[in-house]
Amino acid sequence: MKIKTTVILQILRWLAFIAFVGFAIETGAIIISFIVSFRNPDTAKNLYKGLDLHELKAYGNWVYYVAVVFLAFIAGLKSNVWMNVMTMLSHLKFDNPFSPDIIKFLKRISDALIAIWVIGLLYNILAKYLEHKTGNELMNVLAAGNFLFMAGLVFVIMQVFKRGLEIQSENELTV
C-alpha cells in the first residue's frame, strides 16, 4: 500500500511540475507579448493564445496596460500555486505527515488563491466598467469565484493539518 501511495505522490509531483512550467511559460508569454506590443501595436490582436486586446488598446493605453498586468499577475500567481504544491509534495513524509512545513505551504497556496480571486475581481470590475462605458465587451470576464472556493478548500485542509499536528505533538509528549 505504501508503494502505491508513494508512486501516486511522485506522479502528482510531476504533474504539479508540468503545471508550474506551463503557467510560468504563460506568464512569460503574456509579458513578452505585452512588451512587443509597444513596438508593434498589431501584436495586441493576438497577445497570447488568441487573446485579442486590440480594441482595448484602441480605447486607451492605460486600460490595456492595467488589463495585461492583471492577466500577467494572475498567470504568475497560478504558477506560484503549482510551485508551492510541487514543493509541498516533495516535503511530505509518510512517517510524519503533519509538519509545520506542510502547513506553511498550504497557507501560501491559500493566500495565492485568494490573491488570484482579488485580482480577478478587479479585472472583472474593469471589464464591466468598460462594457458600461463603451457598450461593447472589450474584455472577457474571468471566473474568479472558483479561486475563492479553492482557497476555502485549501484553508479547510490546512486547519485539518494544524489539528493533526497538535494531536501528533500531544502523542509525542505522552510517550
Rank of each mutant, 00 (worst) to 15 (best):
W62N: 11
N80F: 11
G76C: 03
S99V: 05
F98P: 07
N46S: 07
N84H: 09
L56R: 01
I3M: 07
E26D: 11
I8A: 13
N40A: 08
M88S: 07
N96W: 02
K45Q: 07
D95K: 13
N80D: 15
L47V: 02
T87V: 14
A19K: 12
I32A: 14
A16D: 06
A29H: 10
D95V: 13
E55F: 09
N96M: 08
V21Q: 12
F98H: 09
A67V: 05
A16K: 04
K93M: 03
D95H: 05
V21A: 11
V63I: 06
L92T: 09
N40L: 08
M88H: 07
T43Y: 02
T43D: 02
G28C: 07
K57Q: 15
D52G: 01
F34A: 03
A75E: 09
W82R: 11
Y64K: 02
V81P: 01
F34M: 03
V85D: 03
H91V: 13
V7C: 04
G76I: 03
N46Y: 03
I25D: 07
I30M: 05
A72K: 10
G28S: 07
A58T: 04
L12Y: 06
S37P: 01
F70E: 00
L53Y: 01
F34D: 01
L53C: 00
A19R: 06
Q10I: 15
G76A: 14
T43F: 08
N61L: 11
V66A: 14
L47D: 00
Q10M: 15
S33H: 06
K78E: 08
N84W: 05
F20V: 06
L56G: 00
K78Y: 12
I25N: 03
F73A: 13
V36E: 09
P97Q: 05
Q10C: 13
F70D: 00
N96I: 11
S37W: 02
I31F: 04
G76E: 00
Y48G: 06
I31K: 01
S37Y: 02
M88W: 05
V21H: 04
P97C: 07
D52W: 01
I32C: 07
I3P: 06
R13H: 11
F94D: 10
Y65D: 13
I35S: 01
H91E: 14
D42A: 06
W14Y: 14
T43S: 07
D95P: 11
E26V: 08
K93S: 10
F23D: 09
A58Y: 00
P41G: 01
M83H: 05
